[in-house]
Amino acid sequence: HEITLHINGRRVKLRFRDEKAAEILKEAAKKGLDEEELKKLAEELWR
Rank of each mutant, 00 (worst) to 15 (best):
D34T: 14
K13F: 03
L45Q: 03
N8L: 04
R17H: 10
R17T: 09
E37S: 15
E2S: 08
E36R: 11
L33T: 07
L45S: 03
L33N: 06
W46N: 04
F16E: 01
L14V: 13
K30W: 06
K26V: 12
I3K: 01
G32N: 06
R17C: 06
E35T: 09
D34V: 10
L25N: 00
A21K: 02
K39G: 07
W46C: 03
I24K: 09
L38I: 13
K31E: 14
L14I: 09
R15H: 07
L33D: 05
A21Q: 07
D18G: 09
A21G: 11
E37A: 15
R10P: 00
T4L: 09
E36C: 09
E43H: 06
I7H: 03
E27M: 09
R11Y: 14
R15F: 08
I7E: 01
R15V: 07
E44M: 10
A22R: 15
L41F: 07
V12M: 03
E36T: 14
R17M: 15
H6G: 05
E35V: 13
K20N: 11
G32V: 04
R17P: 07
R15A: 04
K40E: 11
V12T: 03
F16D: 01
H6F: 06
E27Y: 05
N8K: 08
E35K: 06
R47W: 14
R47S: 13
D34M: 10
K31Q: 14
H1S: 10
A22L: 14
I7L: 07
K13M: 05
E35G: 09
R15Y: 09
T4I: 15
E36G: 12
R11C: 06
I24N: 04
L25K: 00
K26D: 04
K30D: 12
E35H: 09
E23F: 06
L33H: 08
L25Q: 00
L41P: 00
E27S: 12
R10N: 08
V12L: 08
N8W: 01
R17Y: 12
A21W: 03
L38E: 00
R17A: 12
E43V: 05
E43T: 05
K40N: 11
L33E: 05
K30Q: 14
R11T: 15
L33F: 13
V12H: 02
G9Y: 00
K39L: 14
L38K: 00
V12N: 00
A29Q: 07
K30M: 13
L14N: 00
K39F: 12
E27G: 08
A28F: 07
T4S: 08
K26Q: 11
I24H: 06
G32Y: 05
K40S: 12
L25M: 05
D18Y: 05
N8H: 06
H6P: 06
L25R: 00
K26M: 14
G9A: 03
L45N: 02
A29P: 01
